[in-house]
Structure formats: C-alpha cells, structure tokens
Amino acid sequence: MTHSITVTVNEKEYTREVEPRLLLSDFLRHELGLTGTHVGCEHGVCGACTILFDGESIRSCLIFAIQADGHNITTVEGLATDKDNLHPLQQSFWEAHGLQCGYCTPGVLMTLIPFLKQNPNPSEDEIRHALSGNLCRCTGYQHIVDAVKLAAEKMK
C-alpha cells in the first residue's frame, strides 16, 4: 500500500506516492532525481547520505521517506545558487583540494553546514571530531580539514 507525502526539498515542494519501506535516500535519488546525495553503506556508518532534516544533519539511509512528510529537507543540490556561485563551503573545498573522487563530499558538506553555524571558529580538534562520522577513502582528511578552516574564514 502506498501513502501520499508532501516534502519540501531545497525550498521546492514535492508530492509523491510512496511505499512505507522506501528509504529517504532512495526517495531523493530515484523519485526526485537528486543524485547528489550518495549512498555508501545503508547502515549509518559512512555518512555519504547525510542531509539536513529541518536544519539538522541526519542519515537519509536511516529514515523512511514517509517520515519526511511535512518536513523540510536540504540536500547538497540546495547549497549553490548555480554552478558559478558555489556556497563558500563548496568554494573552499575546491580551493583547498578538499576532495578527490567526491563520493564522500556531499555528506561531508551537509555535516559541516550546521557544524560551522554552531562553531564559527572551530579548532582543528573540533573539525576532526565533527568529521568523525564521515568516511573518506581518498584524501586522508588533511585537505578536508584545510578546506573547513578556509570556509570558516570565508564565512566570517
């Protein structure tokens, strides 16, 4: 049996019929075509699927789409106004080489948005702690940390 849900994603409202077992990550990717949200493990460990749910970072693989009915979601596609105007956090990742393959990047960015809001002047220790829930197989994290420091400067 399907249920009708209405969800606001990146300030746009969508109404869709969903099966209860549809994960929010799959809803975003397959129903809405927002493939920026990546899926790595589907058990909450890798962080690739992190999105904002009513402004807070959560794992979109550990919540059903039906639970998002009436809620406000931001995905990585909601950060930049267009490809020439990146969000300062994205711009910093570009400039500081904070990504290689980019698989982890959307989840990392969506983790850092609320983090930088709450900690506008983070120490390196705090940055590394904030990143502990996001696995990156490429960068060794050093350039991600540099990018976060740069972003904190830019966003002052």
Binding site: I58, I63, T111, G133
Partner: peptide, 9 residues
C-alpha cells in the same frame, strides 16, 4: 554516543 548525525535522531 555515536556521531551528531545519529544523536539528532
């Protein structure tokens, strides 16, 4: 307990 993204839920 876990990470902030998990504790939020």
């Amino acid at each position: 307990i876990a990470h902030p993204q998990i504790r939020n839920r």
